[in-house]
């Protein structure tokens, strides 16, 4: 659901088309747009589930303030997808609760 034409803003600026891997499925995105915007444009609204009750959460403030939109990006959990720019080939996973580090920073250093 992209706003391609707009009476005031004109045509949407064309950006570089890229691919994100979301829970194993490729989706199209525009380079530099927030990950959450790309997901919404692809029709996906549920971004994570809560730890205790497994309730769904989605985009809420779109400003980087509420942390409702956090997901695991390239192995790093709790990334605010509404303010994190999409880059080609990013691996994005929905998370439950606080998620898990795929590579503990300590392990990486060794």
């Amino acid at each position: 659901m992209r706003v391609d034409v707009h009476p005031i803003l004109g045509n949407a600026p064309t950006g570089k088309s890229i691919i994100l891997l979301v829970d194993g499925r490729p989706i199209k995105a525009i380079e530099g747009e927030p990950i959450a915007a790309a997901l919404l444009a692809s029709g996906r609204r549920v971004l994570r589930h809560t730890a205790r009750h497994g309730e769904p959460r989605g985009l809420f403030c779109a400003l980087g303030r509420c942390t409702d939109c956090v997901m695991t990006v390239d192995g790093q959990p709790n990334v605010r997808t509404c303010v994190t720019p999409a880059r080609d080939g990013m691996v994005i996973e929905s998370q439950v609760g606080l998620g898990r580090w795929k590579h503990l920073p300590l392990e990486k250093e060794e």
Binding site: A37, L40, L59
Partner: peptide, 17 residues
């Protein structure tokens, strides 16, 4: 969502909420 969130989505990111 916040109305501001919707405004950001449509006018900056060009995606409908």
């Amino acid at each position: 969502m916040g109305a501001g969130a919707a405004q950001t989505l449509i006018n900056i990111h060009r995606v409908l909420p």
